[in-house]
Design a protein around this nucleic acid. Structure first.
Lengths: 289, 289
DNA sequence: TCTTTTTTGAAACAAACGTTTCAACTTGGC
DNA sequence: GCCAAGTTGAAACGTTTGTTTCAAAAAAGA
C-alpha cells in the first residue's frame, strides 16, 4: 500500500502536494503524534480546525482506502513500538517450510506460550514462589488425566530443592487418607485443564476446608477449582488439534522452579551436590556386584 | 473514576470477581496488551472468543460507563507513554519488569523452542510419524528421571489414537520381563536428556538387538543411546538455571501427536467419541450411587 | 474584472458501532 | 433432584461513525 517506513514519514512526504486545509491538518497531526490520530474523524477535524471530509480526503491522498485503514496502520505501528520483548512477534516463521504440519502446530504453540507469559501477573507468580519456598509448609501436588504428568515433573524437580513434597497418586480413593497428614497452611498445587475433573475439584475443596493454601495451574477458561484457590496461574492452551497443548503450563512450572532456585540458591546447591553423590554411590554399588 | 494506576492493573485486579467468559476476555486482553484493546468491541469479542455484550458488561464491571470511555482511558495512557520520546522509555521500561525472573526465563525458553523447531529434520519427523501410525507395530515408551513424565504424557495421548501402547514402569527391574512381549518391528520410544541414564541406554540396546525400531528424543548433546536409534529428534534444552527445560521436547511430542491425528483422523475421531461416551457413563455411574 | 478551476465544509447518507433485550443455558443452593 | 439466581450470546435497537453529495467560497487564469 505504501513504500514509506512509518506513518509519520508518510505525512511529512505528502506535505508539498497538499492544499491549505490539508497542510493545516497534517501539521496538527505531526505536532501531536500519535495521540492526535487515535480518535475519530470528527475529533481530529475539530482539533485541527478543518472539516471531517477534509480528513477523509487527506488520508485518501496519501494512499489509504479510507480512515479505518489509516487508523489500522497507526495501531500496528503503535503496537510495535509498545511491545515488550516477550509480546513481540518475531518474523522468524518466514524461514520455515510453513506448510508442514510441524510448523503449523509449532507457530500456534509459540503463540500460546507468548501470550501465557506476557499476561502472567508477576505478583501472583511471586506469591506462589514464596509459598513454595516456605519450608515450614508441606507441599502436595495433584493433577488430572493429562496434567498428572506435569505434577509428576514438578514434584521430581521440587524434590531437589526441598523436602516435604508429595505427589498424590492417580487413584482418587487414596486421597482421603492422604488428607489426614495435611495441616492448615500446607500448600496444595492443583493442575486442572479442560475437561475439568470433578474428583480433583472435590479434593481441592476438601483441602481448602482444611485451611490449606490452594495454588491452581489452569487454562484460559479457568477450572471451577478457582473458587477455592488462593492463587491462580492461567495458561493459553488451544492449538489446532483435537486436544490442547501443555507447553505453556510446563513453561510456567519451569519458570517457577527457576525462581525458587534463585530464592534459595544456597540450600538448593547443597541438596544438588548431595544428590549427585548419592547417584554416584548407587552406580558404584551396582558395579561392585 | 478509578483508584488504580494503569488499565492493566485494573484488569488484573478484577480477575477474581470475574465470571468464566469475562476471565477469558481479560486473559486475552492482558495477553495481547495493548494492541488487543485498540480495536472495536466486535473485534475484541471475536479475538477473545466471547460475545460483544460480554465485552461491554466487562468494561462496565471494572468501572467505566461504556466501551468508548474504556478506550479513551487506554488512549490517554498510551499517549502518556508515547508522547515524549524522553519520558517514554523509562515509563515503559518500568512496566516491562524485564528483570523479573519469569521474563528472563521465558525469553530463553522461547528461544530454545524456536531453535528446536527450525532445526528439526522434517523427513525424520515424518518417518517417526509413519512408524507410530503403523498399527501392526506395538509401541513401547521409556524415560529417565525427569523425562518419564514426558513419556507418560505421550502414552496417555497416544492411547486415544491407537491400541498397543505401553509405558514402561519406572523400575528398571521390570524391564527384562517386559522385553518378552516385544517383537521385531515394534517401536521403542526413548526419552533421554542429560544426565543420561545407563539403565535406559542398556535397555535400548537390548531392544535394538531384538530388531526393534528405536526412536530417540534427546537434547542437543545427544544421548549415547543414539548409537542404536533408527530415528533421532533433538531439542535445545539449555536455560539459565541449574537444570534444563523440557518445553521443546513437549512441543515436539505434541506436534507428533497432531501429525498422527491428521494421518488417521477417521479412526482417531471414532476412538475419541467412544472415549467420551465411556467417560460420561463412568460419571453417570458415580452419580447413581 | 470575469470566467474557470479547484478547494472546502454543511448536510444527507449509509455503514459500522456500542448497547439493550431476551431466551437459552449454566451454576449454586436447598 | 429440583428450583432460583446468575451467566451468556443472538438478534434487534438506536447511536455514532466515516463517507458522499453538492453548493458556496477561494484561487487561478485570462
Amino acid at each position: 500500500m505504501t513504500q514509506f517506513q512509518t506513518l509519520e514519514d508518510q505525512l511529512r512526504a505528502a506535505m508539498p502536494t497538499m492544499t491549505r486545509a490539508e497542510r493545516q491538518l497534517a501539521s496538527h497531526m505531526l505536532g501531536n503524534f500519535p495521540l492526535s490520530v487515535l480518535g475519530t474523524v470528527a475529533t481530529i477535524a475539530q482539533d485541527a480546525g478543518v472539516s471531517a471530509p477534509t480528513v477523509v480526503r487527506f488520508v485518501r491522498k496519501i494512499g489509504f482506502s479510507g480512515y479505518p485503514e489509516f487508523r489500522a496502520q497507526l495501531h500496528e505501528e503503535m503496537g510495535e513500538r509498545l511491545a515488550s520483548p516477550i509480546t513481540k512477534h518475531e518474523k522468524w516463521a518466514d524461514r520455515l517450510e510453513i506448510d508442514h504440519p510441524l510448523n503449523r502446530f509449532a507457530l500456534r504453540v509459540i503463540e500460546n506460550l507468548r501470550q501465557t507469559l506476557s499476561q502472567q501477573d508477576l505478583r501472583t507468580f511471586d506469591a506462589v514462589r514464596d509459598l513454595l519456598a516456605d519450608k515450614s509448609r508441606s507441599v502436595y501436588l495433584i493433577g488430572g488425566r493429562l496434567t498428572r504428568s506435569i505434577a509428576e515433573y514438578f514434584t521430581t524437580a521440587l524434590h531437589v530443592m526441598r523436602s516435604d513434597v508429595t505427589l498424590l497418586s492417580s487413584q482418587p480413593n487414596t486421597w482421603p487418607p492422604a488428607l489426614l497428614d495435611m495441616s492448615a497452611g500446607d500448600v496444595l498445587v492443583v493442575f486442572d485443564i479442560r475437561r475439568y475433573e470433578p474428583s480433583v475439584q472435590q479434593f481441592a475443596e476438601l483441602a481448602h476446608a482444611q485451611q490449606m493454601e490452594v495454588v491452581l495451574f489452569t487454562d484460559q477458561w479457568v477450572s471451577p477449582t478457582a473458587g477455592v484457590a488462593r492463587h491462580i496461574l492461567t495458561s493459553q492452551i488451544e492449538v489446532p488439534s483435537a486436544w490442547d497443548t501443555i507447553v505453556p503450563l510446563i513453561a510456567l512450572v519451569e519458570s517457577m522452579l527457576s525462581a525458587l532456585q534463585d530464592a534459595n540458591w544456597q540450600d538448593t546447591r547443597e541438596r544438588l551436590e548431595r544428590m549427585e553423590r548419592f547417584y554416584e554411590e548407587m552406580l558404584l554399588f551396582k558395579r561392585m556386584r
